[in-house]
C-alpha cells in the first residue's frame, strides 16, 4: 500500500486522516469499477440464459441438463405478432416481457418441443397474492392445446403459493385445451379438486389466491394474443376420447 511510506507520521493528525480516507476511497472505487465492468458481460449472459432456460422448460426440455444457449438457438426463433402476421424480431433478446406486453409488443417464440413437435411459446405476466407472476405457455401447431408451461413468481408464500414454480403443478396443464365450446379463450386454474371442464386446471392446495392469479394470467394473457389475431379463431381440438373412437370406427 502507498501509505507504508508515511510510517512515522502522526497517524492521528487531521491531514493524514483526510488524505488516508481520500486515497482509500479512490482505490476502492477504481477496484470495484474495474471488477464490475470486467464481469458485466458474463452477468448479463447469465440473466439471458435464465430466461431462455425458462422458455425451454415450457417446451419440455430439462433446463439443467441441456446446453441452454445451443438448444435455444437450434429450437426457438423469436418473432413478433404484427397485424395477425408473425414477423422476424431482430432486436436484442429480452429477459422479461412485462414491459413489452404492456406496450403491445407481442412476442411469439416459434419452436420445437423436446419431442420434436412444432410449438408456439407465448410469454404471459400477471399478479399473484403478493407480487408479480410470469410464465411461458407452449401451444401446439393448431394453437388450441397446451404442450407445456413454465411459471414463476416474485414473492409468493414459500411452501404454498410458491409451489406454482414446481414441475408437478406446471405439468397439470399439459394437454389442456385453450378454449371452451363457445370458442372463447378459457384456460384457467380453479380451486384444487374443483376442475370440471377440460380447460380447468386444479390449483395448488392452500394457495387459492395465487392459483387464481395464475388462472387469470393464462386466460387474460392468451386472450390478448387471440384478439390480436394470433389464431383465426378458437377451435376446440378433437378430444382424446373422440379421436380414439373415430379411429376405431374407421378401422
Amino acid at each position: 500500500m502507498a501509505n507504508d511510506k508515511k510510517k512515522g507520521l502522526d497517524t492521528n493528525g487531521n491531514i493524514y486522516t483526510i488524505v488516508y480516507a481520500a486515497v482509500m476511497v479512490v482505490i476502492v472505487a477504481f477496484l470495484l469499477a474495474f471488477i464490475s465492468s470486467a464481469l458485466k458481460p458474463k452477468q448479463d449472459a447469465n440473466v439471458e440464459n435464465d430466461t431462455k432456460g425458462q422458455i425451454l422448460a415450457a417446451l419440455g426440455f430439462d433446463r439443467k441438463a441441456v446446453d441452454v444457449q445451443k438448444t435455444f438457438a437450434e429450437n426457438v426463433t423469436d418473432k413478433v405478432l404484427n397485424n395477425g402476421q408473425l414477423e422476424d424480431y431482430d432486436g436484442p433478446f429480452l429477459s422479461s416481457y412485462g414491459t413489452a406486453l404492456k406496450n403491445g409488443d407481442l412476442h411469439v417464440f416459434v419452436a420445437k418441443t423436446a419431442t420434436g413437435e412444432d410449438a408456439y411459446v407465448l410469454p404471459v405476466v400477471g399478479r399473484g397474492l403478493w407480487g408479480g407472476l410470469w410464465g411461458y405457455i407452449a401451444l401446439d401447431a393448431t394453437k388450441t392445446k397446451v404442450l407445456g408451461t413454465y411459471f414463476y413468481h416474485e414473492s409468493e408464500t414459500a411452501g404454498l403459493g410458491a409451489r406454482i414454480g414446481d414441475r408437478d403443478f406446471q405439468e397439470k396443464f399439459i394437454g389442456k385445451p385453450v378454449c371452451d365450446a363457445e370458442g372463447n379463450v378459457a384456460l384457467t386454474v380453479v380451486k384444487d379438486g374443483a376442475a370440471k371442464q377440460d380447460y380447468e386446471v386444479n390449483g395448488v392446495t392452500g394457495a387459492t389466491l395465487t392459483s387464481k392469479g395464475v388462472g387469470a394470467m393464462c386466460t387474460e394473457g392468451l386472450a390478448v394474443y387471440y384478439l390480436a389475431g394470433f389464431a383465426a379463431q378458437c377451435e376446440q381440438p378433437c378430444q382424446q376420447t373422440e379421436c380414439d373412437t373415430t379411429e376405431v370406427e374407421q378401422n
Binding site: G98, R127, W130, G131, G132
Partner: peptide
C-alpha cells in the same frame, strides 16, 4: 424494480 400495479411490495 417491481411493478406497483402487480406487486403489493413495490
Amino acid at each position: 424494480q417491481m411493478d406497483p400495479e402487480t406487486s403489493t411490495q413495490a
